[in-house]
């Protein structure tokens, strides 16, 4: 996915201007919670969630609904598998960088099997026939395993909940993707663009119901999203979510780690 650099620069500028007020030191409970939330830029982040929801309601949700209405479930499943298969090279690199030869072997095996027997990744035969299930990895998780801290919580429109570590990680994910550097010309650009667009639309479709329910049921959607994102990331980094069924219906994290299962 292309990341709009000017938007990011503008956002960072705003970020410096809008910081949450730190609670007074004589209220240790409040200070502890402030640290726990890890969200010094909360007012800015809340504004960014509003921006996101504007775009979401105007564009992403209608498009995702249309996609759901037009593309039947088995075809969407195939699309999910193809997108997941295209992500495996990046997962493989990260398995190796994390020193996980077994998981790297799984990922490599899945890529070979699904690309061939799975007809270019349309069918996840590795999981259904060979019982080798997918897992997700990304550079954000690898950085975490290397001991790099997450930094303050950030909410980025379209991309969703993040932090400097995971944001840098997603840039590295794009850079490490062989398809980013593969060939050139109109056809290749069109394919890369379609893949990026399809990933956004497909991911948003899988999150239509969970996010709608979450927003409806939460007394503070922003705080709930933040808490879920940070907990889920910790579980992903510790590889505690492997084998968890229904991964597509993850509560949040649009964009991060949803593909490749």
């Amino acid at each position: 996915m292309q990341r709009p650099a000017p938007l990011l620069a503008a956002a960072l500028g705003l970020l410096l201007a809008a910081c949450a007020t730190r609670p007074p030191a004589d209220d240790p409970d409040a200070v502890a919670e402030f640290r726990q939330n890890n969200d010094p830029a909360e007012p800015f982040n809340r504004a960014m969630l509003d921006v996101h929801q504007g775009i979401d309601r105007a564009v992403l949700i209608p498009v995702a609904r249309g996609y759901r209405a037009v593309v039947p479930q088995p075809v969407r499943e195939g699309i999910r598998n193809v997108l997941g298969n295209l992500r495996t090279p990046v997962i493989l690199v990260n398995d190796m960088l994390q020193g996980e030869p077994r998981r790297a072997g799984d990922t490599l095996g899945r890529f070979v099997i699904n690309t061939t027997l799975g007809l270019g990744g349309i069918f996840d035969v590795a999981a259904t026939r060979f019982d080798v299930h997918g897992h997700t990895e990304d550079f954000g998780q690898t950085f975490a395993r290397w001991g790099i801290g997450e930094g303050p919580y950030l909410f980025i429109p379209i991309l969703g909940p993040s932090n400097p570590r995971d944001l840098t990680g997603s840039v590295a994910d794009v850079a490490a993707d062989p398809l980013t550097w593969f060939g050139q010309g109109v056809a290749v650009n069109a394919l890369t663009g379609s893949r990026a667009g399809l990933t956004v639309v497909h991911t948003r479709e899988t999150l239509l119901d969970p996010l709608e329910r979450l927003e409806r049921d939460s007394l503070d959607y922003y705080a709930t999203l933040r808490s879920i994102y940070r907990q889920r990331r910790q579980a992903e980094i510790a590889n505690r979510l492997d084998g968890a069924a229904g991964a597509a219906a993850s509560g949040t994290g649009f964009g991060v780690g949803n593909q490749g299962r």
Partner: peptide, 28 residues
């Protein structure tokens, strides 16, 4: 579920509601 603890999430949610209402528990 999915690596998310319900009580931690709800704690964060409730605390945020109170905090954004000037520390009024009655608002929650």
């Amino acid at each position: 579920a999915e690596g998310t603890s319900l009580r931690l999430t709800q704690r964060s949610e409730y605390s945020s509601v109170i905090q954004r209402n000037n520390g009024q528990v009655s608002a929650l």
